[in-house]
């Protein structure tokens, strides 16, 4: 398994840590059958990647083997380096699952990336190969967190919601409009997703 280093993982204030502890606890209360989570929002720039990362880190710190899947094809990490393997490479057979999952320097935290941005990424995600991949990941990890694109901007997110155990909807206080949240909720429910709950992000 390849390794990556996470730089500058800063220490959070205690009240922020408490908030993520509460989030982790509420997710654990959702039941043992909730292992794959989609973290999404209605619109872009609402802090979902940050929250997904911090949640994954918190779960890892609490002895849960956690895989954070960076599933945002719009800003795929693989675009920055041709050596990074991801979902696309795994599902197209260019790489094995072991080559696409990266161990980090945070104990119990692993990462996987979207891979090459292809035009039919939604077809890949809705394929049976993807479902098999997720099933394998569920066995290997306690939690698999998918950091996705905004649900109203991408059908990939809706597909992921239907294939995962739970969806967490991120909202930004005093920025996210109510009508947009209604639309996002409707979209997820139409796709058959299970909304575990909302996380209210209170930025500076």
């Amino acid at each position: 398994m390849n390794k990556i280093s996470i730089k500058n993982r800063e220490r959070l204030d205690s009240h922020v840590v408490e908030a993520f502890d509460m989030l982790r606890t509420n997710i654990e209360f959702a039941g043992n059958n909730v292992k794959t989570l989609v973290v999404t929002s209605a619109c872009a720039k609402e802090g979902k990647s940050l929250i997904a990362f911090q949640l994954a880190g918190n779960l890892a710190d609490n002895d849960k083997r956690t895989l954070l899947v960076m599933c945002d094809y719009r800003k795929g990490v693989s675009g920055k380096s041709s050596n990074v393997m991801g979902i696309t490479e795994t599902l197209t057979g260019k790489a094995g699952l072991n080559d696409s999952v990266y161990k980090t320097d945070i104990q119990n935290l692993y990462m996987m990336f979207s891979g090459e941005n292809i035009s039919n990424a939604d077809q890949l995600v809705s394929s049976s190969a993807f479902e098999k991949m997720v099933a394998v990941l569920k066995k290997k990890f306690d939690y698999v967190i998918f950091d996705t694109e905004p649900v109203l901007d991408s059908n990939i997110t809706s597909i992921l919601c239907s294939k995962c155990d739970g969806t967490i909807l991120i909202m930004e206080q005093e920025k996210t409009r109510q009508d947009v949240v209604f639309a996002a909720k409707e979209q997820i429910e139409l796709a058959g997703g299970n909304i575990l709950g909302a996380v209210l992000n209170n930025p500076v």
Partner: peptide, 16 residues
Amino acid sequence: YFDIPVLAVIPPIEDK
């Protein structure tokens, strides 16, 4: 409004 449980309220943190 949305009949969704609130799992957490995240206070302001520095963007990463």
